[in-house]
Structures are given as structure tokens and as C-alpha cells.
Design a protein around this nucleic acid. Structure first.
Length: 786
RNA sequence: GCCCCUGUGGCGGAACCGGUAGACGCGGCAGACUCAAAAUCUGUUCUCCGCAAGGAGGUGGGAGUUCGAGUCUCCCCGGGGGCACCA
């Protein structure tokens, strides 16, 4: 009864296609469209009711041309810029690598040591929306809490102050960001990032500093390296003036633990209350002055040993801050700094602007040209699209677009002179950041038709894996806001409801030579050991993990559908595991679903009781028939609620319970034929979303015309949802001693009296005085004895 | 290190708001049908004591709140995930 848009599309640009092209000599487009055809066929065979008329592929010019138009709009709106940035550079493959593609400091493909390089890159100004993106998380009440928390952490807002330290003998000041202005009186030095501009300036004149910076740049950026790295630095010789203590100066170091990417790239250090600062201070013999006294400590004797105190307490050794709590002192210190011009209140975010340049062929070309006189010039909208050349050479390393002999040659839209195209393509996460909007008008000659998106968006129910919690879901939220700013959309949030489903997992198999094996290459012997089916060689069974092509622990849907049918595959996937949890794929589980589908079939085609004709007047039903009717209607209500709440495993369990009850009905019960028809039809209707094919066939066999899927969803009769009698648990001192069948809503006194009559209860009471009686109507009677 | 989630039979998992723990399924065991097997069907299946009726214990461990705790609180342990030299 709902008007539902349920489309499907392909996020089809990206590295795998390009790597396959390099490895197999196929064109990325051929490889990609071939895979799409295979997957479309498999999805269709599952019977997923997808609207294929809206199918899109992000690698199709019809899609990425509109993405280029959006890029130009964003550029106009100031949401795109070009800037130099440090990147991971693979010197063998001649490309930038994402952080995830750098393993132990080496390129994942080439194995070459990765270099840090500064390159001009295109950025989306996602930080312009940092506050909004954080604030609006609280409005996403149909999102999982943990996804909101993850985004909150990722944005990483922290409140603090920007503090200026005037440099002795110079006109400029060193600016630092701190969240602990309360500890300013405990400052014993300042430290610069090795990549700080001032560091670069000093390194030009000081070989010692230059050598230290070079050493830092050689160090990998991997977690393991950082973890093990010691806090090291070098004194610059510069001295800065303490902003709150007249005449007090602090030394300035370059330190390896200060990041250029966060804050101002420089810090002031209070070793007593920051562990890194403490380690650094101990190494270089710098003062450690406690300024926050823990609640349990004595201010007169409190001293720092090996651990910095980062908790709350009262301020000491801090002039006008003495005696204040940490939050009070933070506020008071900033007030003083603002009054003196020594600093300002500042909020910092961890979120960085989104670097979208990739030195890759198989992605959306960036619609910009580089002109020797005009610089980087965006194309005019009428110049779009910029299409990928079909004849790129994948045999050579590096970016095939840059290496193409003619593609990049063009003229400047501004001056008309010779110019070259931008050869970087967009990060594939850009492609997936607005596709949901494109589905509303998939063939439009503009990125989105406003009327269509106003009608359909936001997405009412989004479904995706938890792995998208930060990247895709944050980028899409940014894109929606950016598109709104450019007039394409009228809303801020793309996804009103989000459900994060689990992954399908399977054990992994490895042969003795370390090669991964597909599950169907492996058989299990009677003794439980696994062997290679063809050779009989021993196989190592690894732990179950998410199915992935690289580990070969995959079972292709078509194989299951071929042997069991789509209904069995669907039913199995829904049966056991709640959808947000990972699903362990086992053959035995599939067998169980297969048995159920067959059982349902037999129940309808060979019923134990002849089903009453549709519309025949029912006789006076027997008790068993009445009870089954009640269960039918409770099942309708339960399954409906379970489906709406994404508890598909519970819904399947309820359907199976009703199936069991139907099978147990005594055929001699008066009215059995009528209740059987109602029960069996209800089963077929409730099972239809899970197993559509067999239930449609059964619907016809039950004598109906037309499609079951077009029938309204069954509705429970409220009169049949309440039982006339209820089972009440009877406890003595909270321990179960028996149960009672009582008429619904039996009074407290009557319930207690009945409870006391139970033989077990009498024995348990055994003359003891009942001190207290708790009666929860229709549920429990608890007799408390002294 | 910080943050979040999670822990229930041999296994996947049920259990609304604190009220009969283990629904439903898988697997196992026993039986029916069969020459036999497969398929199917029936019974049984948390642990211990007991012929039985029944009793005792039991939701990672320990405390607490409560008439009553898988569910709430605190501490600890295990598993998973996120962030991380973030100032």
C-alpha cells in the first residue's frame, strides 16, 4: 500500500577495475560492464522487486557528466579549492596512495617505500559545514547511536583557546591551540611541528634543525612506528614570552610528536599534565611544574613522577587561577588572555577538508584546465562533459590520463591559448555522495530535477554496512548541504532512517603453499579435517570473516539459487541472524530453510484437513479451532511488528511457530476446515515478502486469482488478540512453584487464593507466615514468607 | 590510551516496560517408514540428584538494588569495533 522507490545502481569507478585492466589487459570499462551484467542477473534471480528503469552506473558518462556540473557549481560556491597537500607517493607506480593503501611504509602493490610529497590537490571544503554536520547529528533519531558517535569523534570538535607567544628578538608571535589554557602557568616549553613554516625557515639557517626535520620525514606514519617512536626534539634557540607572566620566557623546540595537520602546528607544553609533554621534558631536563592538584593530594607536597595528572582538581602555583577548578580556570584564563590580547577563545575540529584528487584513469575527470597564463581555469558548463579517452595505455605505470598523447591538450576557456586538462580524477567517494538524489530523475539533463527530489527525498530508509559509518555517510551529508547551497536540493540531511546491516561471513581456507582456496574446492573428511577436494592435500581452515574476493571465502548467490532456489536463499538469510549482525553462511542452515519451503508447500497442497471453500459459512468451531484462530491473528500482529522493526529472524520464527501449530491441529476438531484455510492462507501471505515465488504459486493453488503481492497486507482482528484465559506464574519467595490457568483479569484476591491451593505452593508454605503478596494481574503471583 | 558495542545450551539465536530463561531453527540421540539409503514424520535434547513426582543450580565473574534481575547500578574479565603523538 506504500509508494516505494526501490532502485539499484552501480558504484563502478575505482581502483579494482584499473588494476584488473593492468593485470589482464582488458579495458576497465569492459571489465566493469561485464561485472555489472553478472551482478544484475544474480540480483534479478533473487526476485528483489527492483525498479530497473532507474538503473544508473557512476562510470557512465550520463552520470559523471552531471557530477562535473556539480563540481563547477561547488567551485562557484567556494566549496572547492586547490591547494598543496602532503600525500603518500608511490615512486614506482607514480601515484598517490590512500592511507589504507600504505602497509608498513610501503606501497601495497609495488612494495616500494612510500614518500611524503607535497602536491597540488583539489579539496572539498567539508570543514565549512563542520559545526552543522556535528549539530545535526542529534536530529538523526532514526540512525544508530554508534554511527552518530563515530561521526562525532571523527569531526572531533574541541573547545579551547588560540594563544599567542611573542618571540623574543622578532616582531612575530608563535600561535598555539590548546584545550588546557588552565595549565598555562605550568608551561615549560613550546614545540613546533617539523612541518611548521617557522621550522622550515629555521632549518634554512641551522643544519641541526634541518637534519632533524629530514629524520622525521623519513619516519613512517604507520601506527606501529608512531607507537614505538620516542618523543624527540631539537632546541631552536628561540625564546618566547609567557603571555601571562611578565618577564618569563620559554624555550622553543621542534618536536617529532607535533602534527602540522592539527591546530596551528605548534603547542605549548605543560609536562605536569600531559603525558607526551612529560616524556619530552624528562628527556631534555625541562621543568615539571604541577598546577592542578588532584582532589586526594596535598597541594604542598604534590609532585609528578612518571605519570602526568590529566584529571580534575584545584589550581595551584597559578597566580589568579589558584583555588579554581579546571573548568573554572579554563574560562578565567581565556578571559584574561582576551582582555590582554594574548589569545582568543577558539573551537578546533579534527575534521580535515576532503582531498579528492586521484592520479587515476578510472574515475570522473575533474573539469578544469591548466593555462600557463590564467592558471587553473574551470570549464564552462557548455564545455561539459569531459569524457575519458577510450584508448588509454594501461601497460605503463602512472596515470594513463597524464600519459595519453593527445587527451589533455586543449585550449583555455578564459584566454583561448594552449592549455592542458587536469589529469587527476575524483575520488570514487564523490560518485557515491549524491547517487541517491540522481535516482529521483536518473536521465535528467541536469544533476537533479528539483520537483523529483522534493517529492522523494530524503531517503526514508537507508541500508548499508557499518563500514560506511564515517566516510560515505559523512560525505553524503556534506554533499546534500553543498547541493542545497547551490539550489539543487531543499534539504540538509539525505537519510532520515539508517539501518546498518551485518556482513555475510565464511571460514577461509589455505593450502600448504599459502594460496587461498574457494570453499567449494575444499571437502571435510569424516574425522573433521579439511582437505583439497581435487588433490586430497591438507588444508588450513581459518577463522570466519566477511566474504571477500581476495580471501576467496565466497559463495556466489547463483550457486545457491541453482541448487535450492531463490526462496530458500532468501529465507535462510533472514532466518537465524538479526540483520544488524554478521551472518555465518553454513550449508546446514540453508538445508533448514529448504526443508521449511517444502514443508509449507506440502501443508498447502496436501492439507491434513480439506480446506473449506472460500466464503463457506463456518460451523460452530471447537476449542482447538478457536485457539488456532487466535494464534493466526497474534502471528499477523507479531510478524507485522517484527518486519517493521527489522526483526526478520523473529518474523520467520513466528511463521514457523504457526506452521507447527497448523500441523498439530486435530483434523476432527469442528470447524477444522475453516480455520485451516484461514491459517494456511495467512501463512502464505505472511511468508510472501520472504519467499515470494513459492507463495505466489501457493496463492493460486488456494484458488485465488491475481498476484498475492498486490493483495493488502493481512490485518489482525483485535478481538482475537486477547486470550480469555492466561497462564499465571506462581512464586514463593521469587522461586517458581507452579503455574495457574486463570480467566483473564482475575482479581488479586482470587488469584492469590487459587495460587495458595496449588499443592507445590502449599508444601512450600508449610505453615510459614505469608509476609507479603505481590500480584501482577495476568502475569504473576509471588508469596513472600518470613 | 580514550570512546562505543557485546558476552544466554554443542551451534545461530528468542525473552515486550524488571515478572515462568532457552521461543524458532541447526546439530545430536532414539524411533517409524524402507531390503537399504536418501527424503519425510514422531519423540527427545541446559546441568546435576531422583524410578517418578519433584528438588537444586544456571544467562562471562564478583558485589548491590528489588518480593523478584539475562534485563537496572558498581567493579573486574573476555570478544568486537571506532578514534588516536589531536595539544
Amino acid at each position: 500500500g506504500f509508494n516505494v522507490l526501490h532502485p539499484m545502481g552501480w558504484d563502478a569507478f575505482g581502483l579494482p577495475a584499473e588494476n584488473a585492466a593492468r593485470a589482464q589487459g582488458t579495458h576497465p570499462a569492459d571489465w566493469t560492464y561485464g561485472n555489472i551484467d553478472t551482478m544484475r542477473t544474480e540480483l534479478k534471480s533473487m526476485g528483489l522487486s527492483i525498479d530497473w528503469s532507474r538503473e544508473i552506473a557512476t562510470c557512465h558518462p550520463g552520470y559523471y557528466a552531471q557530477q562535473q556540473a556539480l563540481f563547477l557549481d561547488f567551485l562557484d560556491a567556494g566549496l572547492v579549492y586547490r591547494s598543496e597537500a602532503w600525500v603518500n607517493w608511490d615512486p614506482v607506480d607514480n601515484t598517490v596512495l590512500a592511507n589504507e593503501q600504505v602497509i608498513d611504509g610501503r606501497g601495497w602493490r609495488s612494495g616500494a617505500p612510500v614518500e611524503r610529497r607535497k602536491l597540488p590537490q583539489w579539496f572539498f571544503r567539508i570543514t565549512a559545514f563542520a559545526d552543522e554536520l556535528l549539530e545535526a547529528l542529534s536530529t538523526l533519531d532514526r540512525w544508530p547511536e554508534r554511527v552518530r558517535v563515530m561521526q562525532e569523534n571523527w569531526i572531533g570538535r574541541s573547545e579551547g583557546a588560540r594563544v599567542r607567544f611573542a618571540i623574543e628578538g622578532r616582531d612575530d608571535a608563535l600561535e598555539v591551540f590548546t584545550t588546557r589554557p588552565d595549565t598555562l602557568f605550568g608551561a615549560s616549553f613550546c614545540a613546533l611541528s617539523p612541518n611548521h613554516p617557522l621550522t622550515a625557515e629555521l632549518a634554512g639557517k641551522d643544519a641541526g634543525i634541518a637534519a632533524f626535520v629530514a629524520e622525521c620525514n623519513r619516519m613512517g606514519t604507520s601506527e606501529a612506528v608512531i607507537e614505538a617512536a620516542e618523543k624527540k626534539g631539537v632546541d631552536t634557540g628561540l625564546r618566547v614570552k609567557h603571555p601571562l607572566v611578565e618577564g618569563h620566557t620559554l624555550p622553543v623546540y621542534v618536536a617529532n610528536f607535533v602534527l602540522m595537520e592539527y591546530g596551528t602546528g605548534a603547542i605549548f607544553a605543560c609536562p605536569a599534565h600531559d603525558q607526551r609533554d612529560l616524556e619530552f621534558a624528562r628527556r631534555y631536563g625541562l621543568p615539571v611544574i604541577p598546577v592542578v592538584c588532584p582532589p586526594a593530594a596535598d597541594a604542598a607536597t604534590f609532585a609528578i613522577a612518571d605519570e602526568a595528572w590529566t584529571g580534575d582538581g584545584r589550581l595551584i602555583n597559578s597566580d589568579f587561577l589558584d583555588g579554581l577548578s579546571v573548568p573554572e580556570a579554563k574560562s578565567a584564563a581565556i578571559d584574561r588572555l582576551e582582555a590582554d590580547g594574548g589569545g582568543t577563545r577558539e573551537i578546533n575540529v579534527r575534521l580535515r577538508d576532503w582531498g579528492v584528487s586521484r592520479q587515476r584513469y578510472w574515475g570522473c575527470p575533474i573539469p578544469v584546465v591548466h593555462c600557463p597564463t590564467c592558471g587553473a581555469v574551470p570549464l564552462r558548463p557548455e564545455d561539459l562533459p569531459v569524457l575519458l579517452p577510450d584508448d588509454a595505455d594501461f601497460a605503463q605505470p602512472g596515470n594513463p590520463l597524464a600519459a595519453h598523447p593527445t587527451w589533455k591538450r586543449t585550449t583555455c576557456p578564459s584566454c583561448g591559448g594552449d592549455a592542458t586538462r587536469e589529469t587527476d580524477t575524483l575520488d570514487t567517494f564523490v560518485d557515491s555522495s549524491w547517487y541517491f538524489a540522481r535516482f529521483c530523475s536518473p536521465r535528467a539533463e541536469v544533476p537533479v530535477e528539483r520537483a523529483a527530489v522534493d517529492h522523494w527525498l530524503p531517503v526514508d530508509q537507508y541500508v548499508g554496512g557499518i563500514e560506511h559509518a564515517i566516510l560515505h555517510l559523512l560525505y553524503s551529508r556534506f554533499f546534500t548541504r553543498a547541493m542545497k547551497r547551490c539550489g539543487h536540493l531543499g534539504l540538509d540531511e539525505p537519510f532520515a532512517g539508517l539501518f546498518t546491516q551485518g556482513m555475510v561471513c565464511h571460514a577461509t581456507y589455505k593450502s600448504a603453499d599459502g594460496a587461498w582456496l574457494y570453499p567449494d574446492e575444499v571437502t571435510t573428511r569424516d574425522d573433521g579435517s579439511a582437505v583439497h577436494a581435487a588433490t586430497g592435500a591438507a588444508v588450513t581452515v581459518g577463522r570466519s570473516e566477511a566474504m571477500s574476493k581476495s580471501r576467496k571465502n565466497v559463495v556466489v548467490p547463483s550457486a545457491i539459487i541453482d541448487s535450492y532456489g531463490a526462496d530458500t536463499a532468501r529465507l535462510f538469510m533472514l532466518s537465524d541472524s538479526p540483520p544488524e549482525r554478521d551472518l555465518e553462511w553454513t550449508e546446514s542452515g540453508v538445508d533448514g530453510a529448504w526443508r521449511y519451503v517444502n514443508r509449507l508447500w506440502r501443508l498447502v497442497t496436501e492439507p491434513a484437513v480439506e480446506l473449506a471453500d472460500i466464503g463457506a459459512a463456518p460451523p460452530e468451531p471447537g476449542d482447538a479451532a478457536i485457539a488456532l484462530r487466535r494464534q493466526v491473528h497474534k502471528t499477523i500482529q507479531g510478524v507485522t511488528g517484527d518486519i517493521e522493526g527489522f526483526r526478520f529472524n523473529r518474523a520467520v520464527a513466528r511463521i514457523r511457530e504457526l506452521t507447527n501449530a497448523v500441523a498439530e491441529l486435530d483434523p476432527a476438531t469442528p470447524g477444522a476446515g475453516h480455520v485451516m484455510r484461514e491459517a494456511v492462507e495467512t501463512l502464505v501471505r505472511l511468508a510472501n515478502p520472504m519467499a515470494p515465488h513459492v507463495t505466489e504459486e501457493l496463492w493460486r493453488r488456494l484458488g485465488h486469482k491475481g498476484w498475492l503481492v498486490s493483495q493488502p497486507w493481512p490485518e489482525a482482528d483485535p478481538a482475537l488478540l486477547v486470550d480469555e484465559s492466561v497462564t499465571v506464574a506462581v512464586q514463593v519467595n521469587g522461586k517458581l512453584r507452579g503455574t495457574l490457568e486463570l480467566p483473564r483479569d482475575t482479581g488479586r484476591e482470587d488469584a492469590e487464593a487459587e495460587a495458595r491451593k496449588l499443592p507445590n505452593v502449599e508444601a512450600a508454605l508449610a505453615g510459614k507466615a505469608v509476609r507479603k503478596v505481590i500480584v501482577v494481574p495476568n502475569r504473576i503471583v509471588n508469596l513472600v514468607v518470613g
